[in-house]
Structures are given as C-alpha cells and as structure tokens.
Write a protein that binds this DNA or RNA. Structure first.
Lengths: 112, 112
DNA sequence: TCGTTGTTCAACCATGTGGTTTATAATGCA
DNA sequence: TGCATTATAAACCACATGGTTGAACAACGA
C-alpha cells in the first residue's frame, strides 16, 4: 500500500546522510564508495545507508564491473510530496489570517 | 538549523499512527485520549506518539482543565514539502516523456 | 470529600538503527 | 598468477523506538 511506502520513504529521508546521498545522486550516478566518501564513515556504514535508500525504492543499483552504480529513482519522493500537499490548505489558512491581522493592524495604527 | 528540523519532521511522519493523528487533528483540535482512541493501544503509548509530534513542532498543546488539547501546527510540514519540491524537476522529466507519449497516442487515435 | 477521568512519569521489554570491525567474496589490472 | 579495489555479510555495540504496566497526580462532578 501507499501508506507503507510513505513509512519507508519518510524513514529514509529522516537522516541527513541519506538526504546528502540523494543530493549527490542528483548530480549524477555514483558508486557506493563515491556516495559514502564525503561522510567520514566506514564503507560498510555507507553501504547500510545505501541499502536503506534502495529498499525504500529511492535508488536503484546496477552492476558495472566490480562497482555498484546507484541512480536516483524519485517516484517515492513524488508520493511523499503529494501527501504533504494535502496540508497546504492548513498553512495557507494561517497565512491568510496572519495577513488579515496585519491589515487590521495597519488600519488601526497607520503610522507604525 | 533547517536540516535538523527536517530530520525530526520526516522521522515524525514515518509512522502511520502519527500521520493518522495529524489527519485527525486536521478535522479539529483533540485531546490525547481522543487522538489515541482509534489506534488500539494504551493511553501511555498514544501519549508517546503525541510527544514525538510535539517535539517535532507539528502540534502544540494547551491545558483545558484536566485535558490536554492538541492543535495542528503545519509549519514543519511546509518546510518538508519545500525540501521535496527540490526534486520536482527529476520526476517532471519523466512526466514530460509520459505526456508526450499520450499526446502522440491521441493524435493517432483521436476517438478514444 | 470521594470517586472518576485525563494525564504524566518511570521502569521495563523487544526490536530497530547507526555505527564499527573483520572476514570473505568478486572483479580488474600489472 | 598475484595484488589492489569494490562490495557483501556477519557479529557486535550503544542507543533510540514503540510498546507495555503500574503508580502517582490534577481536576471535575456528585
């Protein structure tokens, strides 16, 4: 179900290392070693993060010789964004109220 | 930093119980008991989820007599959505291809 | 005042997470 | 062939998470 995909997607995104890896992949496909290199952690540690991203469907891997090339698969991000879009009306209502309050304030105190 | 807020926001959203609680709050403010009631878990369990949502800044609580009324605070959702919007170009490339294919199909079969 | 209700807190448990190290494979190259 | 590179897997550690129970506290109503 989509609900379960949201679980794993949000879970995968809840870590700055993994978000960094996604950003890195946005610039081009990379191997696990290249993905982990900026993060001052062991190769095995980086590989675990890659595995989380992969099982969340956010990346796919294909073998190229002895390397594993990872590529971005943004579809789950899209689902997550669609879910978040649900809430847009809530923050826009607040913004409207805020603007109304500011307008009211201006009318009452025009020289502030 | 915003990065840390993303951590806690995505972490809070990575659980169906908590997403359900947010959806419930979208319909109106609720007490902890009311929030937890649909989820077949102990009150203390529900209160833990509420605490996670609160420390992620997604809800705020105020005392009303002996009850704790929780209200939605959607701002962190907005930040999360803004982060996800970054990636739109990646899936829109794919969508463009899909739309082009559909257009092509319509031209060839105009009476579908 | 007393009981009921809503909540908080601490302790506990099983499991998951983020990280390590180490060993073991698989591949490419001199 | 032998060695360096890249990845995988397993074992381990400290800590967080999701859940429980039970005790205590605060506030409302009879």
């Amino acid at each position: 179900m989509v609900e379960q995909r949201l679980d794993t997607t949000f879970r995968a995104l809840a870590d700055p290392t993994r978000r960094g890896m996604l950003a890195s992949l946005a610039l081009g496909d990379k191997s696990i070693g290249e993905l982990g290199e900026p993060f001052a952690m062991s190769f095995a540690g980086a590989a675990k993060h890659v595995k989380v991203l992969e099982s969340a469907g956010l990346i796919e891997r294909c073998k190229a010789g002895r390397r594993q090339i990872c590529a971005l698969r943004p579809e789950p991000l899209r689902e997550a964004e669609a879910w978040l879009k649900q809430w847009e009306k809530f923050w826009s209502v607040r913004l409207d109220r805020l603007e109304a309050a500011i307008d009211r304030d201006k009318k009452e105190n025009p020289n502030d």
